[in-house]
Every structure is written in structure tokens, then in C-alpha cells.
């Protein structure tokens, strides 16, 4: 029973649920709720991206592209053409999944730097299309988005969004944890350790990589759609290369191959700039110092390093944490 509780699939998920349920006690105004919602949305993207980077061992420097496609797809279909927001979100997600599949098949045959470059290129192309096609996207100045409505109910206000995003984050984490523990997840981890070795034991490397790529793109797209409806406005900044880097940094910071690491990474890197804003000119310096310090003293990322520290004597064969580097 205790072992079950300590495993990420039950204990970890339960802990996350408790945190989400109790957090509002500390959120004393709408601004804090706003930060919490942003953390949740980033965490959803990172949990997906972590499947690709942490488990399948493939890099993507273009995930802001998928996030942006989700955001702009919802924005354009729902705001410009008056589609019901949920239908717009669903259509966009399917389209992004199809795009990720079509693009993923050829580019995931590349490895290392070449794969990084191909995904970077994909992100840049999406960014350029969005900035240039100002007739549909509003160009560099961005586009306003209608609020998310389901049936006759309009989702507005930070508190409602907090619960929606919190619930979706739990679902995302639950899906990711189950995927990792499934045969497909084990195949992904095998791929990460040795692609040749994995193929020798009969794992279809190409198919699994594309699967991880499509799933992570879908997570990013859904988070993008939600972010667009939540903030009511999208600009190409969310699609830019820098945002892709931020997302990868969150995953690496929290700890690769750790789903809760991705959540922690998103939480820390989203709130840190807000905490440091009081230091004005020193903000970026302190931010850099925190990043460097973490990477020097916890090279595997925050969560795996801490988990090792606390459980150094306990063996966790079924745990996903810290197993695939």
C-alpha cells in the first residue's frame, strides 16, 4: 500500500490533486489566480513536450509553433468566423495533429542537431505565416479572441479558469503517466537509451517517435487554444522561437523524463520572473543565477535530483523518475 502511494501514478497524482485543491487558500487575489492559470497552461504543454524530450529522447525547438497554431486556430475560427469555441478548438487540435503527423514522419528520421534544426525551421515557418497573413491573423499586432463558452455558459474570470485548467492539468498528467507505464511508454524509453537496441528487440522506432511528437503537439495545441480564450488576445510573440526555448527550458529545468518535473519546471519558470520583478534591473541577472545554480547543483533537473536525494537508499524499479537519461 505504501509502495503504491509512493509511485508517481497514484501517490504523485494524488499529491498534485491535493496541491491544486488547496492552492486557492494561498491565492488571495485575482492576480495570483492569473499566475496559477498561466502555470497550469504551461505545465500542460511541458507534460506533453516531456514525453518527446524526456522519454523518446527527441528534441523539438518548434513547439511554440504548435501552441501558436492552437491559439490562432481557435482565435480565427471562433472570433472571425463565429464558430462555437469548442468546435473551433476540436477542429484546430485535429488539424495540428494531422500536421504534426505529416511533418513528423520525415523530420523525425533526423537525429541530434539536425532534428533540432528541422523543428526550429518548422516553428519559424509557422511564425512567419502568422505574422505575414495579417488579413486572418491580425499580423504582428495580434488578434482579439472571444471568451470560451460551452453551451450557454461563458467561462470568464480567473477563479473559474483556475479550476478548469487545474482539472485539465490533472487529466494531462494522468494520461502521460499512464502512457509512460504502457508498452508504448516502455518502447519510448528503450528508444531513448538506444535506438539501435530498441529496433533489435522489435520496436518500430519511427512509429513511436512520431506518436510522441503528435501527442506532444496535441497537448501544446490544446493549451494554446485555452490560453487564447483565457487571455482574450494573441500576438505572434507566443509563436516565436524564444517561446519554444522557454518551453524546452521548463522541461529541462524541472527534470527530463519526469512528468512532475515538467510541472515543477513550468511552475518555477512562470512564477520566477514575477517574483523577481521587484528587483527591476537585476531581474535578469538573478534569473540567470538561479538557472545556472540549479543546473550546476542539480544537473538532472529539480525533481529527479531531489527525488534521488530523498530516496537514495530506496529502490523504485517501477518509478518513472530519473530512469531514462
Amino acid at each position: 500500500m505504501l509502495a503504491r502511494l509512493a509511485s508517481p501514478r497514484t501517490g504523485g497524482l494524488l499529491a498534485l490533486a491535493v496541491v491544486i485543491a488547496l492552492l486557492p487558500l494561498a491565492l488571495t487575489n485575482k492576480y495570483f489566480y492569473d499566475i496559477a492559470v498561466l502555470v497550469g497552461l504551461n505545465a500542460i504543454v511541458c507534460v506533453g513536450l516531456n514525453l518527446l524530450i524526456g522519454y523518446a529522447g527527441q528534441i523539438s525547438l518548434g513547439h511554440a509553433g504548435f501552441f501558436g497554431l492552437g491559439a490562432y486556430g481557435s482565435a480565427i475560427l471562433a472570433s472571425r468566423y463565429g464558430w462555437p469555441p469548442l468546435a473551433a478548438m476540436l477542429t484546430t487540435t485535429l488539424a495540428v495533429a494531422a500536421l504534426a503527423y505529416l511533418v513528423g514522419r520525415p523530420i523525425l528520421r533526423l537525429k541530434g542537431h539536425y532534428l533540432a534544426m528541422a523543428t526550429l525551421g518548422l516553428g519559424v515557418i509557422i511564425f512567419m505565416v502568422i505574422t505575414t497573413e495579417d488579413k486572418y491573423t491580425g499580423g504582428p499586432d495580434g488578434i482579439a479572441v472571444v471568451p470560451l463558452s460551452i453551451g450557454g455558459f461563458v467561462l470568464q474570470g480567473e477563479r473559474i479558469w483556475y479550476w478548469v485548467v487545474g482539472a485539465l492539468l490533472l487529466v494531462a498528467v494522468w494520461l502521460a503517466l499512464n502512457l509512460i507505464e504502457s508498452p508504448a511508454g516502455r518502447a519510448l524509453r528503450a528508444l531513448h537509451s538506444s535506438e539501435v537496441g530498441a529496433e533489435v528487440v522489435g520496436i518500430n522506432a519511427a512509429e513511436h517517435k512520431v506518436m510522441a511528437f503528435v501527442i506532444s503537439a496535441v497537448f501544446a495545441s490544446v493549451a494554446g487554444s485555452l490560453a487564447a480564450h483565457y487571455s482574450g488576445f494573441v500576438t505572434p510573440g507566443k509563436v516565436a522561437f524564444l517561446h519554444s526555448i522557454e518551453l524546452v527550458t521548463m522541461v529541462v529545468f524541472g527534470g527530463m523524463a519526469s512528468t512532475f518535473g515538467a510541472v515543477v519546471g513550468a511552475a518555477v519558470l512562470t512564477t520566477l520572473p514575477q517574483l523577481l520583478a521587484a528587483f527591476e534591473d537585476y531581474e535578469m541577472m538573478l534569473f540567470g543565477a538561479v538557472m545556472m545554480g540549479t543546473m550546476i547543483f542539480m544537473p538532472r533537473g529539480v525533481v529527479p535530483s531531489l527525488a534521488r536525494l530523498f530516496q537514495s537508499r530506496r529502490q523504485q524499479p517501477s518509478s518513472g523518475e530519473g530512469s531514462g537519461t
Partner: peptide, 15 residues
């Protein structure tokens, strides 16, 4: 960054 502008504005108003 429009997203940062939005968050900081919320902070200016609420906090």
C-alpha cells in the same frame, strides 16, 4: 510581450 503586459497589468490592478 503581450502576455507579460497582461499579467503585469493584472498585477498593477489587483496587487
Amino acid at each position: 510581450d503581450a502576455e507579460k503586459a497582461r499579467t503585469f497589468t493584472k498585477r498593477l490592478i489587483e496587487q
